[in-house]
């Protein structure tokens, strides 16, 4: 950020010479103020998100005990006998997100190593844009693919898998976040100076040894940050898990049975006919607040890791 500020020093900009007025105010000032408002919208968005979530969730916690909410494991707000244990939804979310990471982490990291250490420039120039296509495909498409292609395939392998299950959603979500892992990790690896690699090669190291013992340690902060960002993305992902993982809030880590994630629950209530103002409706704010806290924490963590543990060469 400091670098950006230094790129052209604003203090040297001369005083405005544009004397045009707008209702008695210098036009330059009016424009400056308008631009400030534009920038303020993004700050207001954050304030709006936090205010809306906290305000509505506070009303929800006026009726339901906060302690029951964060420690309960039964989630049945839409039934006659209501339970509000968010852990059932958290378990579904964590399960699918971790499953996605198990797919995306090795594939993404190995792809990144391939592109940064092995691929000639021509191949890299070809493969990288294609990988980015994967990141640009709408999640609804992945959801369709998970339910109608991956799930039947899994059920052919083992009959014990339900139509809706966390496994199928995890696999497809893993493919979705793979480009994020590979692209960010690759950037971090390419930022490692050549001289480090050359030193290792001069000592007789193989490419495997250079990759795993020199490049990965040097780029570790960037790689870890990419994992955390991808995980945060998986936690906030909605359509794949809504379509493929089901709407049964089970407090389980079993990937073969139907579950429900926090995001899928919000969709379920939004699609239903719970009138605004009812307790059923207010639950989505409490759930969304939980989701927001999760993802915010992970985003801040990844920023912290990059800032704190970055190995700066040159």
């Amino acid at each position: 950020m400091e670098e950006q500020a230094n790129s052209h020093d604003r203090s040297e900009a001369p005083r405005p010479r544009n004397r045009r007025m707008w209702h008695g105010v210098p036009l330059e000032r009016v424009i400056g103020f308008f631009l400030f408002l534009c920038a303020a919208v993004s700050v207001l968005t954050t304030i709006g998100i936090v205010a809306v979530l906290v305000w509505e969730a506070a009303q929800f916690f006026g009726e339901i005990s906060f302690f029951d909410f964060i420690t309960g494991t039964k989630w049945t707000p839409l039934f006659a006998s209501k339970h509000f244990g968010v852990l059932a939804l958290v378990a579904g979310t964590v399960q699918t997100a971790i499953g996605a990471m198990i797919v995306a982490l090795p594939l993404g990291l190995l792809s990144a190593i391939f592109m940064s250490e092995y691929a000639p420039n021509r191949i890299r120039g070809l493969v990288k844009p294609v990988l980015e296509v994967l990141a640009g495909i709408p999640t609804i498409v992945y959801g369709f693919f998970a339910l109608l292609f991956i799930t039947p395939l899994l059920r052919d392998v083992s009959g014990g898998i339900s139509v809706f299950n966390g496994l199928s959603a995890s696999i497809v979500m893993g493919i979705m976040i793979l480009p994020m892992v590979s692209s960010l990790s690759e950037d971090a690896m390419r930022a490692v100076p050549r001289s480090l690699r050359e030193g290792a090669y001069a000592l007789g190291a193989t490419k495997l040894e250079v990759s795993t013992q020199v490049v990965i340690p040097a780029a570790l902060s960037g790689i870890v940050a990419s994992f955390i960002l991808a995980m945060s993305r998986a936690i906030g992902e909605t359509m794949i898990v809504t379509i493929a993982a089901g709407q049964n809030p089970n407090f389980t880590l079993n990937p073969l049975v139907p579950i429900e994630t926090m995001t899928a629950f919000i969709v379920q209530v939004s699609q239903g006919d719970s009138p605004t103002g009812t307790l059923e409706f207010k639950t989505i704010f409490a759930v969304a607040l939980t989701l927001f806290v999760f993802t915010l924490f992970m985003n801040l963590l990844s920023q912290y890791i990059v800032a704190r543990f970055r190995e700066a060469y040159e």
Partner: peptide, 24 residues
């Protein structure tokens, strides 16, 4: 503040924006 805020907003799940839109 705006700069840090923008970086964090990019990581907010899209469904949360839906809730903001619904309320505002």
């Amino acid at each position: 503040i705006a700069q840090i805020n923008i970086a964090n907003l990019a990581g907010v799940p899209s469904i949360v924006y839906g809730i903001l839109g619904l309320e505002i």
